[in-house]
Write a protein that binds this DNA or RNA. Structure first.
Length: 919
DNA sequence: ACTCTGCAGAGAGGA
């Protein structure tokens, strides 16, 4: 039986004498996981337990209830008790039940595994690093892996290995794979010929070994399998599986008889994963492709590339104990020192880095410290943001846990998956990959989109046959590409830690590699300086002109505050043009692809006669970049020299901040980084972009929506907002708006911009529906003739929807249409997604309906807002007033508010809004 | 309590 629960108190570790001699044991008070009364998740919990029990050959049985009991961890498992803290989750497999003084207790058996925080999914490579040295694991996380040839070559050989297993001809595979990495190889100064030759050398070893296998007996192969273990809390991608056993490919040389220990550890992780998926694993294979048959040692006769080893019980348990230590440390938020392990620092490649990081951050470390610690405020900043980013990571981990917490049926109301697909076909693609097709059987909504990486499974993403796949098309039919042919009936979001990783690296780089003057600015120790620029850039808008002047003349940074409709994008484009004319290299960035493409579009107009369009490059994935910007997109594959020239010669590079944190972009340097929508960026997110440049310009509006973060923490305030407070003299507010009629802008102006926002010209102030072709306000009912109107509804009591408001809005659309308005000129905004779909079902398809959050950045002739609140205005969505600022500043000519006045009057800001709208 | 965008992924190697 398996015991799962939460540590409920202090752990008692002791030594006792048994008939076998001295034994260690730890007594852990555990509050057993709830398995009682049939609310959601429990059925599944017991399913899981049953399955585990079945796998272990036992009776389906699980400890249940809320009571606290004692679980005894024997011998080496007592080690895992050292870092157990109250509140941590604990799982003991194959435990035995004991009666002790009338109480039921549990204890480990010889077959048991003890898993600490099983829902914290640890990467196989993380365990591998950790086993080598816990401090190495930490350093890797902080600074990432830079672009270097051995790593790129290693990746290439792995890809070719996978291709060979999928029967792709060697020559074709090498050519294609080398071509795909053109950009990276170019940056490394490699030629395709030399790389291909190098890869061919390694591939020989693989081919020879595959040949051997094919001669002896029937071999069963599978390449590149993504595996997740809910029991052991491990996830990873095995290079290959042969006859059920893991095969790990290593591009290095190993002339010893035995595989390297850390390589065995890696294979052991895959063995655990495979066992959970119903396998019986007793061997592992390491394939060292730099070893050739010529290396064969005459004495041992054993130095061929492939080394098999027996997968012992001791190794598997060791691996789980190491994983436990890692998970416990992460959950507690501690930093490893290196003393946890036994690695010798003088043999370590990272010794210098380790000492420098320890010295700069004043951390305890086995390798010792070098250099002066950073000033205390910087160390404090590091810790604060490290904690915040790791909290975000934990949220991502919680999403992994959701993959198995709920079973398929319960997921129907969850938008993280598409269930109930009907498998249509699998078709081999050129290059050994597969195209999978499935049909959607219901119209369910999900957050999955084209270009997303998902877990494609035959029913269950963790327990079933599943594979990482790319969504190529998503309408009535789903088209996917994947390495292996899964008969897909279900898709799940595959959570990614990529952005969290990059945030951490960006923060690390800003503090540990950052320029001192830059840091003085970021920490408010020095005032930003500006060069005097006599030129006039924009002659009909003083604030815009000042913004461009500041951006161009900034020695350190400039901050442009752009309220709705104030021509932010134009100002950015004009500023970049001026920089380009001065011969500077400019990075244009923003958090979202949409913002990057919008800014780029405006910029291209400005640059038309200034530079060759070839010198403007958009870096990003095909699915992220908008179609009309595709011609500027930097292709990754191709002739290395050409690809790298395209990037290096570009005078303007546009990319999202996440992409700025990528290995390729980190190799680039710029004179200026210009970041749009900067108020939506966390501090480390903004750092990813500004790290690459000498100076920076942030453009945004902190009165609109803040960064999207999963956890409540220090990441919610943007760098833009903090710097505006800290260096007001570096900021300029664009104060003239070109969007809204005077009546419409009035409320936002007084409420959010101290009354300083005003129409740019009389024509803007006087805008109304009569300006539109074929529309006459005369034909509208009285109460809709004003630019701002309020439509009272009683409302309905349900929480996130209001069908009465939806129906009323449908009427409004008809009314506007009757008055000659085009449906495509109307936008409807609601706070909740549930209400968005409710409204969508009431109105014609070509009317844009969306949440406030998604409407940010766009505008419409007419905007209708559905407040979806009856009686009261409670709920976090209404608390952030920046959200109403966004909603109310989208229209140009007419704004209609639909809601229950009683509810709105319960909050002072909404009450003022009501007064303004009904005046 | 709700809102929700980024990322190909995880792992690539060197004594």
């Amino acid at each position: 039986m398996h015991v799962r629960g939460t540590v409920a108190g202090e752990v008692d570790v002791k030594s006792v004498s048994t008939s076998y001699g001295e034994s260690d044991l730890a007594e852990v008070p555990v509050r057993l996981a709830d398995d009682g009364d049939g609310d959601s998740g429990n059925g599944n919990e017991s399913m899981r337990a049953e399955r585990l029990a079945r796998d272990a050959g036992g009776e389906p049985n699980v400890a249940d209830g809320h009571e606290t009991t004692t679980v005894t961890l024997w011998n080496k498992w007592a080690e895992s008790a050292d870092y157990l803290e109250p509140g941590m989750e604990l799982l003991v497999t194959d435990a035995k039940e004991e009666e002790y003084q009338g109480e039921t207790r549990y204890a480990t058996t010889g077959d048991s595994y003890v898993v600490v925080e099983p829902s914290f999914l640890v990467n196989v490579t993380s365990i591998r690093n950790w086993v080598e040295c816990p401090r190495l694991y930490y350093l890797n996380k902080l600074s990432g892996v830079p672009l270097n040839y051995p790593v790129v070559k290693g990746t290439l050989v792995h890809e070719v290995f996978g291709d060979l297993l999928r029967d792709r001809p060697l020559a074709e595979s090498i050519e294609a794979r080398v071509d795909e990495r053109g950009l990276e190889l170019g940056l490394l100064g490699e030629t395709p010929e030399a790389v291909a030759e190098d890869v061919r050398e390694n591939a020989k070893a693989i081919e020879g070994w595959l040949e051997q296998g094919r001669l002896t007996e029937e071999d069963s192969w599978r390449s590149e399998q993504l595996l997740i273990s809910e029991t052991f809390g491990i996830r990873g991608r095995a290079d290959a599986i042969r006859r059920g056993a893991p095969v790990e490919l290593k591009t290095g040389k190993n002339l010893k008889k035995e595989p390297r220990f850390k390589d065995k550890v890696q294979a052991a992780c895959y063995a655990l994963l495979l066992e959970e998926h119903g396998g019986e694993v007793d061997t592992g294979t390491l394939l060292y492709t730099k070893n050739s048959v010529l290396d064969r040692n005459e004495e041992t006769g054993d130095l061929t590339p492939a080394k098999d080893f027996a997968m012992g019980d001791g190794l598997l348990k060791f691996v789980v104990r190491q994983r436990n230590e890692l998970a416990a440390m992460e959950v507690a938020g501690d930093v490893p020192t290196g003393y946890e392990g036994s690695a010798k620092c003088e043999y370590c490649f990272e010794q210098d880095t380790c000492m420098v990081v320890s010295g700069r951050l004043d951390q305890e470390s086995k390798a010792g410290q070098i250099g002066q610690p950073l000033p205390e405020e910087e160390r404090e900043y590091f810790q604060r943001f490290y904690r915040a980013i790791e909290e975000e990571r934990r949220e991502v981990h919680r999403e992994y846990a959701k993959l198995w917490e709920q079973d398929a049926r319960e997921r129907a109301d969850d938008d993280r998956a598409l269930i109930d697909l009907e498998f249509v076909e699998k078709r081999p693609l050129e290059g050994g990959r597969w195209e999978l097709r499935a049909r959607r059987t219901s119209g369910e909504n999900s957050k999955l989109r084209e270009g997303d990486l998902v877990l494609a499974s035959d029913g269950h993403p963790v327990r079933g046959d599943s594979e990482l796949a790319m969504i190529e098309r998503l309408d009535d039919e789903v088209v996917l590409t994947a390495d292996e042919p899964v008969e897909v009936t279900r898709l799940d979001v595959y959570p990614s830690e990529l952005t969290t990783d990059r945030l951490l690296v960006a923060m690390h780089d800003a503090l540990l590699k950052g320029d001192e003057r830059r840091k003085d600015i970021l920490f408010g120790r020095t005032e930003p300086e500006f060069e005097a620029i006599p030129e006039t850039f924009i002659d009909n808008n003083d604030a815009q002109n000042e913004a461009v002047t500041k951006a161009v003349g900034a020695r350190d940074c400039a901050l442009i505050h752009g309220p709705p409709g104030t021509g932010k994008t134009y100002t950015i484009a004009r500023a970049i043009r001026a920089m380009v004319e001065r011969g500077e290299r400019v990075l244009l960035s923003a958090f979202t692809n949409r913002a990057v493409d919008n800014a780029l579009e405006a910029l291209l107009e400005q640059l038309e006669d200034v530079i060759d369009p070839d010198r403007v490059v958009r870096v990003g994935s095909e699915s992220g970049v908008r179609d009309d910007m595709e011609p500027y997109r930097l292709e990754r594959s191709g002739e290395p020299e050409d690809r790298v020239a395209e990037l290096q010669n570009a005078q303007v590079v546009a990319a999202t901040t996440a992409t700025c944190g990528s290995r390729v972009m980190k190799e680039q340097a710029f004179d200026v980084a210009l970041v749009d929508e900067a108020a939506q960026l966390t501090e480390p997110g903004a750092c990813a972009a500004i790290n690459l440049a000498e100076r920076f310009v942030l453009v945004g509006d902190h009165e609109q929506l803040p960064p999207v973060v999963r956890a409540e923490n220090d990441l919610t305030e943007s760098l833009f907002e903090r710097l505006i407070d800290c260096h007001p003299e570096a900021g300029v507010m664009l104060d003239r708006q070109y969007r809204m009629n005077q009546r419409i802008q009035a409320f936002a102006s007084t409420e959010f911009y101290d009354g300083e926002l005003r129409p740019a010209e009389p024509a803007v102030a006087a805008r109304n529906l009569d300006d539109l072709d074929g529309v006459s306000r005369e034909s509208l009912p009285d109460d809709l003739r004003d630019p701002v109107s309020f439509v009272e509804v009683e409302g309905e009591d349900s929480q996130y929807t209001d069908s009465e408001e939806a129906a009323r809005i449908a009427d409004l659309i008809e009314t506007y249409e009757a008055a000659g308005l085009d449906r495509s000129d109307i936008g409807i905004i609601a706070p909740f997604r549930a209400q968005v779909s409710e409204i969508s079902s009431h109105v014609p398809e070509d009317v844009a309906v969306d949440t406030v959050d998604r409407f940010q950045g766009s505008s419409q002739e007419v905007i209708i807002v559905s407040f979806t609140a009856t009686g009261t205005l409670e709920g976090p969505i209404f608390e952030d007033y920046r959200r109403i600022n966004v909603a109310l500043t989208r229209p140009k000519r007419a704004l209609v508010l639909v809601g229950d006045p009683t509810a709105l009057a319960t909050d002072p800001v909404y009450e003022r809004m009501l007064e303004w709208a009904t005046a």
